[in-house]
Design a protein around this nucleic acid. Structure first.
Lengths: 229, 229
DNA sequence: GAATGCAAGATTTGCGAAAATCTGTTGATT
DNA sequence: AATCAACAGATTTTCGCAAATCTTGCATTC
């Protein structure tokens, strides 16, 4: 079961990606090669490849001869990203409701169940269960749109998810910032409407879900946006 | 005016990108480092960076320890890409019609004019004017949606354009493969509807434009799709 | 006193060689 | 005859150093 060690490039990519997403580096912070080499114990070449890939993913910015920085965050980008997610994912959900088979339904039921379990288990401040919760949440939303039949739509949804997860991470840790919101009920309602093949209701609920999320995140960002921190 | 020589990485990226888009490499063809090093006269590091970036753009695929290949083409991907373009760009056009100012209108008029001029000038088989025509075509479509106000939408449109241009390139060269189609008239009609702020008509025409393009490209691909060539 | 130019240090970028990995072939074994 | 192991060649991946470039601090000049 011990898989052969992945390439240094992939390792570096995964580690850096995780640390940026979880907020270990502040937005706009310079990412110096020497510093990263010491931190991760890999040479320049794999690091450069990792940073180039992260730049393409939008998590890192780069300027020629001036190195790499953690990509900035902003209220404007948060709003844009969530609106675009809503636009694209409602379409993918619509298509999935039309084309989804038994396996699609099963994926929704199973991922919703797993999300609920993790939600119960997740206490206030365990970084471990926090990452698990985020993964379950992601799985559920991907399951919803997993029968769209469009590879391109899936890729777009994936990249928009990456662009939004950094905003959600800090707010997940302090649970009190979700005042009058029953997340599991929202997710359950979306799943029910999808399984009932009610396009209008399901897409409307999903749209509202993202609107609420965007509002909540822009209200009380745990880390001030647009600062170098 | 002689700009300082760009970094080797950027040069390699631009050259490889151009050659892949213009079809100098067959789909699925392996891209060997040694071969590319000889062809472009740059070392391993810049080549690797270029290939990594192209992989993120979807023009190249990579498998760990097995190197890079030119990304495949397929009827299925062509259809998916054009449908997704239509879906995303009609929305961006809708928003642009609502929000577009005088500059937006000016960009449409000017890019349409330039496209028309280049269209007249473009003879049957000049690779130079062919590239220019493609660029004008691209500029016009980007101008149409340039007032959407959404950075994310712009990024998506850009990446989908890259994904579709390889299919159009071969068919542009043999003009007779566009039998009963007046491309300039189509573009003109779209521009008119946009400038008249007629959302329904403009988006409908744009959608139809992409549907026709997809049909035409899947009918008579100059190079057979899905073959190693 | 403020602005400019210069030098030293820090950082990114590029190159070639060494190490690790894969592929195809040959030869031995069942 | 078929299967498997090992070997040789080719290819990718990684590392360390040299070159190019940027930044910072300081002295000089107006």
């Amino acid at each position: 079961m011990s898989k052969t060690a992945k390439s240094m490039g992939e390792q570096a990519h995964a580690m850096l990606r995780h640390q940026i997403i979880s907020g270990a580096f502040a937005p706009e912070q310079p990412l110096r090669l020497a510093q990263l080499q010491e931190r991760f114990g890999v040479g320049f070449s794999p690091l450069r490849e990792a940073l180039t890939r992260l730049t393409a993913e939008g998590l890192v910015t780069s300027e020629p001869m001036r190195g790499f920085r953690v990509a900035p965050l902003s209220q404007e980008d948060l709003r844009d990203t969530m609106e675009t997610r809503a636009f694209v994912e409602t379409e993918a959900l619509r298509r999935s409701i039309r084309r989804g088979d038994d396996d699609w339904e099963a994926r929704i039921v199973s991922s919703l169940h797993a999300l609920g379990r993790q939600f119960e288990r997740s206490g206030p401040d365990q970084p471990e269960s926090l990452a698990a919760l985020e993964e379950r949440h992601r799985d559920f939303h991907f399951a919803l749109v997993s029968a769209s039949g469009s590879r391109r739509l899936e890729q777009i949804i994936d990249s928009l998810y990456v662009g939004s997860v950094r905003y959600r991470m800090p707010s997940l840790s302090n649970r009190q910032s979700t005042p009058a919101r029953d997340l599991m009920a929202e997710h359950g309602a979306i799943a029910d409407a999808a399984l009932a093949r009610d396009e209008a209701l399901a897409t409307c609920l999903l749209d509202e879900h993202y609107r609420l999320t965007a509002e909540m995140l822009s209200m009380a960002p745990a880390a001030p946006l647009g600062r170098t921190g």
